[in-house]
């Protein structure tokens, strides 16, 4: 018990302190080094190519001969004033809104049904998700058969006595039809067929995400609502749905990104349609570039698409990463 009262700080030695180096530095640097191959690949294939596309969109390369002379924003002016691209933007908005709305509603209904402690839950879940495992191209081919105006679903309508059956994707009508400049503003009826096929394919995703969300709502919260006298509907609207705000936002972002990427489905199902009533920017870009050889205009379309995509995915990814910390 020699020195029971020794303040620890009293014995400062007078050795020269050398700054400590980072002992874990090597392994951490190794972690960084291992990322380099991927970073180079993505640096070239994603960021480099985007920059390249951006450059092409500002040149006069609109034939098979790469004329890389400066054109400024002329290609953007051209596409934005074209009937086809204006139609594309209308179609993109209509498609995205209907597709996401359909996904959210159907996905939520399916998730609620599956969440009722039912038997064979796994089987039902599998049935609603399996279209996700199928190629968009396959979906397009199959649904162009099912929604073929002269057969398919329409046979049922005929059997039920309807004489005016829908023309599905062959329709060139707009509802409503409002002329604005050179295009009709309204819902291109032909596009509805594509929305149906897309919702069939993708609603399983919304269901799976909602199901996860529903299951993470604490049981006590529902019990508390029940004790407070809320019925099932009241509980859903006032307690569960507000809890699923983040889940819904996630689905909206992911599905909007998917809708901006839709290509194979349109390509295989309808193509551009009459008067571009089912055309999409993606298809326009592909055909402008590789069939029309207007590379600079194609690049301009692609850059517009990219900016649209970035507008909502960048905030989403940033908030997702911030939420981790």
């Amino acid at each position: 018990m020699a020195n029971p009262v020794t303040p620890a700080k009293a014995t400062r030695q007078t050795t020269v302190r050398k700054p400590a180096r980072r002992i874990r530095g090597w392994d951490n640097r190794m972690a960084f080094f291992t990322l380099i191959p991927s970073l180079i690949l993505l640096g070239v294939f994603v960021y480099g190519f985007i920059a390249w596309s951006g450059y092409v969109s500002l040149t006069n390369w609109n034939s098979l001969i790469p004329t890389l002379t400066w054109a400024g924003l002329r290609n953007y002016a051209t596409i934005f004033s074209s009937f086809r691209f204006q139609s594309d933007l209308r179609n993109l908005v209509v498609f995205t809104v209907l597709f996401i709305a359909g996904d959210l509603v159907i996905g939520m209904i399916l998730a609620l049904l599956v969440d009722q402690k039912i038997r064979a839950e796994g089987l039902f879940r599998s049935i609603f998700i399996y279209p996700m495992a199928i190629s968009m191209v396959v979906t397009g081919v199959i649904w162009s058969w099912i929604l073929n105006p002269t057969t398919g679903i329409n046979l049922f309508f005929h059997a039920l006595g309807f004489t005016h059956v829908p023309e599905w994707f062959l329709s060139s009508r707009f509802a409503p039809s409002v002329h604005l400049g050179q295009i009709d503003i309204g819902i291109p009826v032909g596009l509805l067929a594509v929305v149906i096929a897309a919702v069939w394919q993708m609603s399983g995703f919304a269901m799976a995400v909602y199901l996860g969300g529903l299951r993470s709502v604490p049981e006590e919260l529902k019990e508390a609502a029940r004790i407070d006298g809320a019925g099932p509907w009241r509980t859903f609207w006032s307690v569960i749905l507000p809890q699923l705000k983040g889940t819904t936002a996630t689905i909206v972002v992911i599905q909007a990104a998917a809708s901006l990427k839709v290509f194979g489905l349109i390509y295989a199902m309808t193509g551009s349609g009459q008067d571009f009533s089912t055309d999409m920017p993606n298809l326009n870009m592909f055909q402008t570039t590789f069939q029309g050889d207007a590379f600079a205009q194609g690049a301009a379309i692609a850059i517009v698409l990219l900016l649209l995509m970035a507008a909502f995915t960048v905030p989403y990814v940033l908030s997702m990463l911030r939420g981790e910390r």
Partner: peptide
């Protein structure tokens, strides 16, 4: 243990300065 870096100072095990060792 060497799982955390030192900002300053030294650690000796036996007679060896292990401050920088993994």
């Amino acid at each position: 243990a060497g799982l955390e870096e030192l900002s300053e100072g030294n650690i000796y095990i036996g007679d060896h300065d292990v401050s920088q060792l993994p």
